[in-house]
């Protein structure tokens, strides 16, 4: 299984490269949302508002970006994939790939958001770490949920209904951690939040690893 994962990730990357429009679509989604916020707010000076808006944009962009991970592939190609690789390998590869994708989207979101609405972040390293931890968390939860939602008739709305409750605690912890980064507080204050984030991630990874094999075949 360990050998499969790099190959499967490479396959995901090639797939993405073949369909460049879907990645550009998500970037455009971020750009337009940030631009709408810019037209509404002009400049944000309040740290709480900046923080909340940033993570809400991130949440919706992530949901849209990951929603396609099981839907975009045709039934025939999924079937072919299932004969070649183990289910655990597939879910882990997809999760790692989505985490990479969301990290890129997160950093892009931060650059563009900071450019238009003002960059209030004082501790840039911690903020970057928050984006990466958040992308990991979003990717882990959303990949599993998109596998579940892809089995239903109304994938789009179910994706949000199923994922948002699970993402709320993650999001609250992320917002607290990123507020520490915005305020430039000492790292020692933030250790608890980092550990909570990692713990939630580990729990969901274990669940996805155990449960996905029951889900993959129709």
């Amino acid at each position: 299984m360990l050998k499969e994962i790099p190959i499967l990730i490479k396959k995901e990357l090639q797939n993405e490269w073949k369909q460049k429009f879907s990645f550009s679509g998500i970037l455009l989604y971020v750009i337009s949302t940030v631009f709408v916020s810019y037209l509404c707010f002009k400049v944000i000076e309040n740290i709480l508002v900046w923080n909340a808006l940033f993570w809400i944009i991130m949440l919706f962009a992530a949901t849209n970006a990951v929603a396609k991970s099981f839907i975009q592939e045709s039934k025939g190609r999924l079937l072919y994939l299932y004969t070649l690789a183990s289910p655990q390998g597939i879910i882990i590869a997809k999760t790692i790939y989505n985490a990479l994708l969301l990290s890129i989207i997160g950093i892009f979101n931060y650059l563009f958001f900071g450019l238009l609405l003002g960059d209030l972040v004082q501790d840039k390293t911690l903020f970057l770490l928050t984006i990466i931890l958040g992308s990991m968390g979003f990717a882990i939860v959303l990949t599993m949920i998109s596998a579940i939602a892809s089995k239903t008739n109304n994938t789009g709305s179910l994706m949000a209904i199923l994922a948002f409750p699970i993402l709320i605690p993650l999001l609250i912890t992320l917002i607290r951690l990123s507020k520490n980064a915005l305020d430039g507080l000492d790292l020692s204050v933030s250790y608890t939040y980092i550990i909570v984030l990692l713990a939630i991630n580990v729990i969901v990874v274990v669940l996805a690893y155990l449960l996905f094999p029951y889900l993959w075949r129709d």
């Binding site: 239903t152 179910l158 948002f164 409750p165 699970i166 709320i168 605690p169 609250i172």
Partner: peptide
């Protein structure tokens, strides 16, 4: 909030059942 999240997760379970 944890309690509210829990109920939301289970409401989502009902919706999930309804949509397959």
């Amino acid at each position: 909030n944890g309690a509210a999240v829990t109920l939301l997760i289970y409401f989502a379970y009902l919706i999930l059942r309804g949509s397959i």
